[in-house]
Amino acid sequence: MPPALPPRSIALVLGTRPELVKLTELIRLLGPAAHVVHTGQHYDEELSGRFLTDLGIPEPTYLTGIGGHPRAVQISAALAQLDALFQTEPPLAVVVQGDTNAALAGALAANARSVPLVHVEAGLRSHDRNMPEEHNRVLIDRLADVLCAATPENRDNLLAEGVAPELVEITGNTVVEAVHSQLPDADERSAHLEELGLTPDGYVLATVHRPENTDAPAALRAILTELAALAADVPVVLPLHPRTRARVEAAGLAALLAPLRVTRPLGYRDFLALARHAALLVSDSGGVQEEVTVLGRPLVVVRNSTERPEAMADFATLVAPGPALGRAAREGLALGAPGRARLAALPSPFGDGLASHRIVRLLAELATTPYATAA
């Protein structure tokens, strides 16, 4: 076991629901040493508030005035508040996860205060400069002092960019332990499906939230049109993000929701319960690309590019909005029970479920070593 760290000595800066999910086990393992700082990039009681409760995350320190603003404003406002916080309560290390505006602000604040920075999920690359997240993750990796790569491919990306090998550790992805710890048991899953009138392996679960799909009316129309056509053959469940609902209404596409089983946004456990028994998932989420590899379910990814090619080998198919989505979905459904059984027997390419334990050990070593920046 690593040595105990002082209370509130590790600042974990996050701002979105995926970060909450992926850092939950790390926060639990750190115990009193964890100081969770929530920038409010995604915050409302219905979504982030319920996630905090469901996941058992201790009450964070909240920043203010950040959610709902453009990217530059979010980063600059969070950076100013984080700098003040780190001045009054200096951490031994700062942890950020992924590629959000919150993560970049946390990385910049740590660097400005000469605090060691640990980047969880380092080295992801889509090689698509149209994605704001791609710029965020590249910048964070250049600032980080410990880069926790989920896969060997992620490590290779970093080394190809000139990152010093001694800064990179292959830890696995914390999503694996998140799924294992948060997946409801069989009875709870059965009750949840019964409540929605669903049968195992008898429905499609879809999510749509990325700006490239929701902010472009043509793309949103194409996705909903294909989902509505699919619903003629199999129930399609669509937990609808408030932002997506607003875009649907603004684009005059509400009629395309009628064939779908639209639900409110789901807590993480409820989502996993549905994902575990879906015949197929359709999503533009990065996290879902990882989660299906743990759950053993097929996925159609509706995006122009992906930073998670590891999922594409067996579990997922990448398509653009339009008829290709419908074709890929029907091919996924045609896999049937034998195809799903094959996927369920495969190991996840994202690790063995011990990533958070490895990261805690790295943090303990970092906190007891004299700090020298990666530069």
Rank of each mutant, 00 (worst) to 15 (best):
P323L: 06
S190F: 04
G322I: 08
L274R: 06
V118P: 04
V175P: 01
L333R: 05
G40F: 02
D156T: 14
A250G: 11
S285K: 08
R142N: 13
V168R: 03
V236R: 00
L14C: 05
A219W: 02
E188V: 01
E161Q: 12
E121V: 03
Y62S: 15
I27Q: 08
A93P: 01
P91I: 06
L343R: 10
V95Q: 08
P239K: 11
L335E: 12
A77K: 09
L104I: 07
H357M: 07
L220V: 13
L196C: 09
D284G: 06
H38E: 06
E25F: 00
L266Q: 14
L333F: 11
V37H: 01
L281I: 11
A110P: 02
T317L: 07
G296M: 04
V292T: 05
A160M: 09
A144L: 02
R308F: 04
A232D: 15
Q182P: 08
E195H: 14
P18K: 08
F51Y: 07
Q182D: 04
R297T: 01
L299S: 01
F271Y: 15
G197H: 10
G15Q: 02
P265N: 09
R71T: 03
P70E: 08
R50L: 10
A102H: 06
G40K: 02
E121L: 12
S9T: 02
R297H: 09
A367K: 09
A206V: 07
R142W: 11
E46K: 14
A341K: 14
Q289S: 06
T100D: 03
G98E: 03
H69G: 09
V300E: 01
I10S: 01
A255G: 08
G197K: 04
L85K: 00
G68D: 05
L23H: 05
H135F: 08
A320F: 08
L363R: 06
A311N: 01
L281M: 14
G172E: 15
H38T: 03
G67R: 12
E310A: 10
L124F: 14
E249R: 15
P58G: 09
T88F: 00
A324Q: 13
P349F: 09
E45M: 12
L227V: 01
E25V: 00
A374D: 14
A103H: 03
E249S: 15
A218P: 02
P323G: 06
V168Y: 00
P338A: 02
L12K: 04
L12P: 01
L253C: 10
A160E: 11
